[in-house]
Structure formats: C-alpha cells, structure tokens
C-alpha cells in the first residue's frame, strides 16, 4: 500500500471528513434503510482508512466484519422490523399517530423513527440539548487536545514484538500478538462470539431467515461462489502466518459463504443441525483452551506453547477458530435456532 502512504495530507482530510459525514448522515437520516446503507458505506471507507494507516489486517477484518456481517445483520433485522410497509417511510404524520398507538403490535410504521422523546416540554428539551451540546463540545475539545499531545512519534511495543517474533512460531507481527503474545485475549474473544450466539438463541425469536424460495440466478451464483469463498478462507488462514490475514478474516469470509449458501436455499442436513453443528460452533474455544491448558502439563505457563511447536499449535488453533467463527457468524445471521 505504498502508493497510498505517499499521497498528501489532502487525502486524509477528505477521508476523515467523509467518515464524519457518513456517520452523521447514518445517525440522522429520517429513513432507517438509508441509515443502514450509509452505515455500511461508512464501514467500507473505514476499511480504506485502515489500509491508509498501514493496518492491512484491520482493513481485511473491517470490510467483511464491520461493514459486511454487521451490515447484513442490520439489514436482516430491519427487514423483520418493517413487514411489507416500505411505503410508510418517513411520514411525519404517521409518526405522530404512533405516539398514541404505542404498544399495539403491527401498528407502528417503524421506518420513520420520530426520534427525540416528544412528551417532554419544549423548554426542558431545549435546555437539555444546550447543556448536552456544551458538554459534548467540551469533551471533544479535551479529547482532541489529548490526542494532539500524543502526536509525537513513539514506537510503542514494536521493538519487543520484533525481538520475540522468532520465538512466536509465526512471521507476521499482528498474528504473533493475536495468537501468541496476547493469545489469552483472542481465546476470550472467540468466547464472546459464542456467547453472543448463545444469547441470540436463548431469545428464541426463531424467525428463520431466507425461508422464501430463492431467485434461480442467485441460487446458481451462490453455489458457484461458495466453494470459491471457502478456498479464499483457507488461503487467508495459511497466509496469516507471514502476511496480513488469519483466523478472523478467514472466518468472516467463511461465514459469508454460509450466509450465501443459506440464501440460495441450501439447508444443513437434519442430522447435522443438532449437536454436530454445536460441536463446530464450540470447537474454536475448545481447541484453543485445550492446547493452552495442555502445555501446563509440560511445565510451561498457561498458553505458553514451546517454541518448537508454536507454529503447529497456532495453525491448529487458527483452523479450529476459523471453522467456529464462520459457523457462528452464519448462525448469528440466520438468527433462529436450527
């Protein structure tokens, strides 16, 4: 990305302003569908910013996860919030009526969200807005000032990472931090993903998505794309050892492949939807924890893989994590319990 780094300050100003504008529009546009679309665009631009900052690993995660998966989740939720009443969009009068009909399911035109609480007196609201504006401005000012103070160059932990990189089992610094130096965080982070899925399933809204008959073109295209995406995922895991990439990027591509397959009408075989699926979902945390604990038996500290095996341990962990992350993301999108 050297060509990007060489560009002048103007590019950064434009990128920064675009991000702020997209975020502001996404948070204030009266139409929720438009808001979500703008938010997805925001994620894509943020991905470009990461590339600009030489954070290719983050860019590779931001675009499929931050923009892709989050966007798909938002759109899926939105499609369930507004059953067939797309025309009721942005009608202020309809929103007024809503205030009196609150609590009646199916009556609300959710697309137009009359946001500010309307039952408080106008003077009170104006005062509140003024105070809050003042506070937020003060906060922005001090945060900006603090950031300014942090401007002088600092190498952070770069030297320590480089010194210990040969012992980590991988050649790419970010992968070394994620899977070895700070592997404990990463183990727990996969647990957070699994936890979110358990939470979603416990709510049992069970609104199975994509149960409509798929478009024939989409179906054919998905069946063609999905194997390709699985290949890309495998490549991303492999490349993560010495270049940007790794389990999270690969897992999100795998999850997207699962979503596509699902949208094309493919279903898990009935026998696989029970404990075999759950096994795949839990595999990432289980394998990571098993290896991390087994090394204690060898006299190593928790999660301290011996240098000679570190490469293989990390590869096994990453493969299991990729499978689990892909399965969890696809299951989160589908929503209801299988």
């Amino acid at each position: 990305m050297a060509w990007l780094t060489g560009l002048p300050l103007a590019v950064d100003l434009v990128l920064g302003a675009t991000l702020l504008w997209l975020a502001w529009r996404a948070l204030s546009s009266p139409d929720l569908f438009q808001a979500v679309a703008l938010f997805i665009a925001f994620g894509v631009i943020l991905g470009l910013v990461w590339a600009r900052l030489d954070a290719i690993d983050i860019a590779l995660a931001e675009i499929p996860l931050g923009a892709g998966v989050t966007g798909a989740l938002l759109l899926a939720a939105l499609s369930q919030l507004q059953p067939a009443e797309v025309d009721a969009r942005a009608a202020p009068s309809a929103t007024e009526a809503n205030e009196h009909q609150a609590g009646q399911p199916g009556q609300t035109a959710e697309t137009a969200d009359a946001d500010e609480a309307q039952h408080k007196p106008a003077v009170f609201r104006a005062l509140l807005a003024a105070v809050m504006g003042l506070l937020l401005f003060a906060a922005l000012f001090s945060l900006g000032l603090v950031t300014w103070q942090l401007w002088e160059p600092s190498s952070g932990l770069t030297q320590q990472v480089n010194t210990h990189l040969p012992e980590s089992g991988v050649e790419h610094p970010v992968t070394a931090v994620l899977l070895n130096f700070r592997g404990y965080d990463t183990l727990l982070e996969i647990a957070v993903l699994l936890l979110a899925l358990i939470g979603v399933w416990s709510l049992a809204t069970a609104s199975n998505l994509g149960d409509t008959t798929p478009e024939p073109v989409l179906a054919a295209l998905s069946r063609l794309l999905a194997p390709l995406m699985i290949l890309v995922a495998a490549y991303l895991v492999w490349v993560g050892a010495h270049a940007p990439g790794g389990a999270f990027q690969a897992g999100s591509v795998l999850g997207a492949a699962g979503v596509l397959l699902r949208l094309s009408g493919w279903r898990l075989p009935a026998g696989a939807a029970g404990w075999p699926l759950r096994l795949v979902l839990a595999l990432g945390v289980a394998v990571f924890a098993f290896i991390g604990l087994a090394v204690i038996g060898l006299g190593e500290p928790l999660l301290g893989y011996p240098t000679a095996w570190a490469k293989h341990a990390i590869l096994v962990i990453e493969l299991a994590a990729t499978l689990s992350i892909g399965a969890i993301l696809a299951s989160l999108f589908i929503g209801g319990r299988p």
Binding site: D57, S155, G156, L157, P173, V174, V177, L178, R182
Partner: peptide, 9 residues
C-alpha cells in the same frame, strides 16, 4: 505498532 492493531481486531 502491531499491538494496538491486534487490540482493534
């Protein structure tokens, strides 16, 4: 610095 990058991931 790779450490904050990993944190953001």
């Amino acid at each position: 610095d790779p450490v904050p990058q990993a944190m953001v991931l």
